[in-house]
Write a protein that binds this DNA or RNA. Structure first.
Lengths: 339, 339
DNA sequence: CTGTTAGCGCATTCAC
DNA sequence: GTGAATGCGCTAACAG
């Protein structure tokens, strides 16, 4: 921040009028003579005036910035979320401040603390995979700091949440595999506590039960989502006496790791093993075979989350928490089509 | 931002001491009695005090936040850059405020204006592909607002820049293709004005000249980087009487589009057409054939850019602009190996 | 070691 | 329609 920045005081001095007049003129207050306003606007322009948002924020007790906490930035899904949030916020005159928890609970708490100190007007949060306690969220709630949860949510609080219909998506995927004639469908999941894992497991089980296939715990793997873990669990699945004929992966990155192992072992996809992912990340269509997956509208999620938070900020009284669930869509490609 | 936030005044009142003592205790000023400090810290904790960074910023004329302007958030390369910046900033006590220009010059200008209004202490900027004028940058420079350019840079200003050695990377890639026996190597580039396009073209040409291959303008395509453009230009290359036997793509996303067209046409990769990308994005190794590419250390770039900006902020006198060029590394995979 | 005072830049009463 | 005065929460002289 430069010291030399011009202030409304400088403008007032130059025009020999009062600070308050300048302030009013700049804010297009109706009580200012058109002439004066024009004069002020012009000299502001000339002097290259740029309002000090920090001072404004202190004065009006609002920063017009949203805080974002995501597990990770360099994941396409979250990047797309943030992109949606940022575009929306910008359009409505808000800035965004971003923190990543790096999937770490302590970091997540610290991020929230930092953003609160920065007095963001509201928060958009997607939980880390380590997060199993939620005092930091109840705390926010009690302090009446507006926040919205998205994707990796916590359900026990009356706040707005935005997710995709994870259960439905997993159901569609599993149903599709069944339709392809698969009998032993494995689910390569993530950490058991994670919201999306639970929901997707529900959908997976529902689809199986519906056609009378018993859920076999051996076919459900809980990866910690590292490539190492994804790979070794895939190998474990392959070692089963009664090997699966399909794998439904928690998300596309996991599916990619599974695919790599299958290819290395010379297992034909989808012939010997059908494969379905979740997310529809870019380039999932460029894999070979192209990856069947459940499309998750990440940008749209970010947009919705931001718009709902902003609505709440603008009209706190009229606010009612919403549970927004976006529908998913199965994108059928080659990795699962046996016919 | 909640009205109910406790201030140092509240703490002072409760402890019946002065505001400044509280302030000093909180900041671990050495002139405060240990006992008082402890007392203050404890009640601050009890009262759930969170310092008002806005007020601090106004007072000290520093916000401890960095502004970031990137063309796009949902691109892995920039997301990884930002991740590096964010981690680094956070470690050194800074926040980041992020804007995306969406590859639009006007938006880029507007983003910078917004961040300046927010009084960020410094900026990290990667230019949009539309940016062909640079007054907004010279303007920043004249105002003495510290900023660093990365990846998509402008060279005519004495500011710190961080890039990879684009020329060298392109040279390595082309050299490698030549080594594989390719005789007619096409370069699928992007907008001519873009820094990285110019630099990579240099490397490409250098490698060709070195072995006495004449640069054929027909083999150099300038895509606008949309899938549509990438595809149609690929098709154009295939229609040439003297068809290329290799394509070096500006980056991995372009390479993916090229690969799709080649596969659709049944052209063997690398047999009939070798292919090399640039970036080493995630999953470029999961493509089939796996993509030979030039690795670009995006996270590292962000880290370096942030650290250099922060150094400049902390010691403005001792500051000298640096031109930081990271070395690239050719990652040889299947899409280019004929032997 | 601690308290008093001033002021960062701005929006907003309250006067006139 | 405009100006003077006040204070947002905090830090930093200046006193003692």
């Amino acid at each position: 921040m430069k010291k030399g920045q011009v202030t409304i005081r400088d403008i007032a001095l130059k025009l020999d009028i009062s600070i308050s007049t300048v302030s009013r003129a700049l804010r297009n207050s109706p009580e200012i003579k058109l002439e004066t306003r024009k004069k002020v606007l012009r000299t502001a322009e000339e002097m290259n005036y740029s309002p000090n948002v920090v001072a404004q924020s202190l004065r009006v007790n609002k920063t017009k910035t949203l805080g974002i906490v995501v597990p990770e930035l360099a994941s396409h899904f979250f990047a797309a979320n943030i992109s949606g949030i940022q575009d929306t916020a910008y359009k409505r005159g808000y800035n965004v401040m971003i923190c990543q928890s790096n999937e770490n609970y302590e970091q997540e708490k610290s991020d929230i603390r930092t953003l609160i100190s920065s007095r963001v007007d509201g928060l958009l949060i997607s939980l880390s995979r380590e997060t199993k306690q939620y005092e930091h969220l109840t705390n926010l709630y009690e302090k009446e700091i507006p926040f919205v949860l998205f994707d990796r949510i916590y359900e026990e609080l009356p706040v707005t949440t935005v997710t995709v219909n994870d259960t439905q998506g997993a159901y569609q995927a599993t149903k599709h595999l069944i339709g392809q004639g698969c009998k032993r469908i494995a689910f390569m999941s993530g950490p058991e506590g994670l919201y999306i894992c639970k929901k997707r497991l529900d959908g997976y089980e529902k689809a199986l039960r519906e056609v009378g296939i018993e859920v076999d715990p051996q076919l459900i793997a809980h990866s910690d989502l590292t490539e190492r873990s994804n790979r070794s669990l895939t190998e474990d699945l392959l070692k089963l006496k009664s090997r699966p004929d399909a794998i439904f992966a928690l998300n596309d990155p996991v599916a990619v790791d599974v695919m790599k192992v299958l290819k290395e072992k010379g297992i034909k996809i989808p012939g010997e093993m059908a494969l379905v992912g979740f997310t529809n990340m870019p380039f999932s269509d460029a894999l070979d075979p192209s990856l069947t997956t459940v499309d998750q509208p990440a940008y749209e999620m970010g947009k919705l989350a931001a718009n709902n938070l902003l609505d709440q900020l603008i009209d706190p009284e009229g606010f009612q928490p919403r549970t927004i669930v976006l529908e998913t869509e199965l994108v059928m490609r080659k990795s699962s089509q046996k016919k």
